[in-house]
């Protein structure tokens, strides 16, 4: 009996070893370990054995069973791994084929620039104000120290609808409106982006419609050095820490003193090139200390309050920053132009 068990074990292990697929293994399992299998049969015939032999054979039979089962399990894992590998190989795809395109649009370049500038000034405590694009003569000119008959408000330069109503020529009326709303009683710290209109023939550098962002800060004891500090921060954030700024005296009816701000030319690093017309500097905005007449007309006492204001053109900034060579690109909406600026 002992010999028979050992024979069976040998035979079974050989078959396990020879098995090539999982179903071969299953057959071996059924054939040797099943209820009708030879080992079960051996155990059934144990009753015929002597008391001494019984535990010896029993132990042996269980051991044989265990050995075969272990071997079966081991072989099963191996075969399963092989089979999975085969399956995965069949599932292989061409990873170099293109992915499914995702439809994603994006903002207009001007919106991005305006948004960037808004966020920058919001960070410095400014609020964002808006106002009508069709303005009254009063807010567009008179409230800004441009009385009737002033040469800078020639009928030829503005789109009038009636004698008293026109398309705003700058976003400055929003300053006057905001100050009026605040009643001369509290500080104003705002920027106002928006569309403006001038009677210009459209060409590479002129557009009858363009964008402007104006800023205004009115409070007690505002200094011109504050204007310089704020504009310097703006320029560095917008154009890079390595840009230098330069203020030059200028003239606007609504500010006194007035300034124009240049940044050092990025192309030549201030040495002089065709972009900066050999000066090393590029003009990017105008501003100054709010004219006392403007404060007065808006209900602020110029002996108590003063402030600074500035204005800039996002088109010009976009043109400088990205090298856009024609202002008309912003309004033609060529798909290829729009999509260029959807990137992060």
């Amino acid at each position: 009996m002992k010999e028979k068990l050992q024979e069976l074990e040998k035979e079974a292990l050989l078959k396990v070893n020879e098995a090539k697929e999982l179903k071969d293994l299953q057959e071996v399992r059924v054939a040797y370990l099943g209820k009708k299998g030879p080992i079960t049969e051996v155990l059934r015939g144990m009753g015929k054995l002597s008391k001494e032999e019984r535990p010896v054979i029993g132990e042996l039979a269980n051991k044989v069973r265990e050995n075969i089962a272990n071997e079966l399990d081991g072989k099963k894992s191996t075969l399963e791994a092989i089979e999975l590998e085969k399956q995965l190989e069949n599932e292989t795809i061409d990873v170099t084929l293109p992915g499914r395109p995702v439809q994603i649009g994006g903002p207009h370049l001007l919106t991005s620039i305006v948004g960037e500038i808004e966020d920058l000034f919001i960070g410095m405590g400014f609020e964002v104000r808006e106002g009508p694009e069709v303005e009254t003569d009063y807010y567009n000119f008179e409230a800004l120290n441009l009385p009737k008959g002033h040469p800078a408000r020639d009928m030829q330069d503005s789109f009038y609808i009636t004698e008293d109503i026109l398309l705003r020529t700058h976003t400055s009326p929003v300053q006057a409106r905001t100050m009026g709303e605040y009643n001369g009683e509290k500080p104003v710290k705002m920027i106002c982006p928006g569309k403006v209109y001038r009677r210009d023939t459209d060409d590479a550098t002129h557009s009858h419609q363009f964008t402007q962002i104006e800023g205004l800060y009115v409070d007690k004891d505002v200094r011109m050095s504050d204007l310089k500090g704020v504009l310097n921060r703006f320029a560095k954030e917008m154009f890079g820490e390595d840009r230098e700024i330069r203020l030059r005296p200028s003239f606007f009816p609504f500010t006194e003193p007035s300034v124009e701000m240049d940044i050092s030319c990025k192309v030549c690093n201030g040495k002089g090139c065709s972009v900066c017309k050999k000066t090393g500097w590029i003009e990017i905005l105008g501003g100054g200390m709010v004219h006392p007449r403007v404060l007065e007309m808006a209900g602020y006492d110029p002996d108590v309050y003063n402030g600074f204001a500035f204005g800039m053109g996002p088109e010009r900034i976009a043109m400088l920053k990205y090298g856009v060579d024609d202002i008309r690109h912003f309004y033609i909406n060529d798909n290829r132009f729009l999509k260029q600026y959807h990137k992060a």
Partner: peptide, 15 residues
């Protein structure tokens, strides 16, 4: 001219 920042009461800007 020096570079300074406004010395008025700090306001939270925003949209």
């Amino acid at each position: 001219l020096p570079y300074t920042l406004p010395q008025g009461d700090a306001q939270a800007g925003g949209l």
